[in-house]
């Protein structure tokens, strides 16, 4: 371990930790609102460590969606990480197997983006730097989840204090974060129409899979413009 690079990682991750903190608390509060205990919420933050998919998970769990569909949805929301891990491969090939295990576990959007940026500037993507950057975000994420969960238990009716609009707006913000991608508008339009129709004709939770499938199939069927192998732009989470 290189102390200077570890500290450099801590400094780099600090602003992201601050920006992510309210979302950790929000997750904790909403998790409790959806039937989680405080320990469950912290356990999920510690084990999954992927904010957006955790929100999706508690929302579906709270609506009594079948467990396999909850896991599938978490998988689907996190699918972009496949692209990150493919693209980061060339920078972390020198990590040991154990180091790679930790590196992949901590591979959230900003971790990926900053690693790519660091490599681009010719700086070494060392394990010390990577771990420092990751841990300063990881542990506060757990603490903020616990804080949010504690306060969430004190809340009676979430509608009276406007908690129920936060998740749709949060997801709306995430959708907007993808708007630079190819075929964004047709994909969103197809998924929106299909999910609204499925909600009406089939009912929850099927609107999620039916709506998502419509957008994904459309993207595969539309004429392909981009050169194969080119990586898409990174979007920031939260």
């Amino acid at each position: 371990m290189n102390r200077d690079e570890f500290r450099e990682g801590l400094r780099g991750g600090f602003p992201i930790m601050v920006a992510a903190s309210p979302f950790g608390a929000l997750f904790g509060a909403l998790a409790v609102d959806n039937g989680f205990s405080i320990a469950d919420a912290v356990f999920m933050s510690a084990a999954v460590y992927a904010g957006a998919s955790q929100m999706v998970g508690i929302e579906l769990f709270g609506n009594n969606v079948q467990p396999w569909l909850v896991v599938l949805s978490v998988f689907a929301v996190n699918f972009r990480h496949v692209l990150y891990s493919a693209s980061i491969a060339k920078h972390i090939r020198h990590f040991t197997l154990v180091q790679k295990f930790f590196a992949f576990f901590l591979l959230i959007d900003p971790q990926y983006a900053e690693s790519e940026r660091r490599a681009e500037r010719g700086l070494p993507v060392s394990f010390s730097w990577y771990l420092g950057f990751g841990l300063i975000i990881y542990f506060p994420w757990l603490v903020n989840t616990a804080i949010g969960a504690v306060f969430g238990q004190l809340i009676g009716d979430p509608k009276a204090i406007g908690l129920d609009v936060l998740l749709p707006i949060y997801f709306l913000g995430l959708v907007l974060g993808f708007r630079q991608r190819d075929r964004f508008l047709p994909v969103v339009a197809a998924s929106a129409v299909a999910s609204v129709a499925a909600m009406h004709f089939v009912g929850s939770p099927w609107h999620v899979s039916i709506g998502a499938l419509a957008g994904v199939l459309l993207a595969a069927c539309l004429p392909q413009e981009r050169e194969p192998g080119e990586m898409p732009a990174i979007e920031k989470e939260a």
């Binding site: 929302e59 689907a76 929301v77 959708v175 994909v187 969103v188 998924s191 299909a194 998502a212």
Partner: peptide, 8 residues
């Protein structure tokens, strides 16, 4: 991701 999130 955009497709899944839009359904929510």
């Amino acid at each position: 991701p955009a497709a899944v999130l839009t359904t929510l």
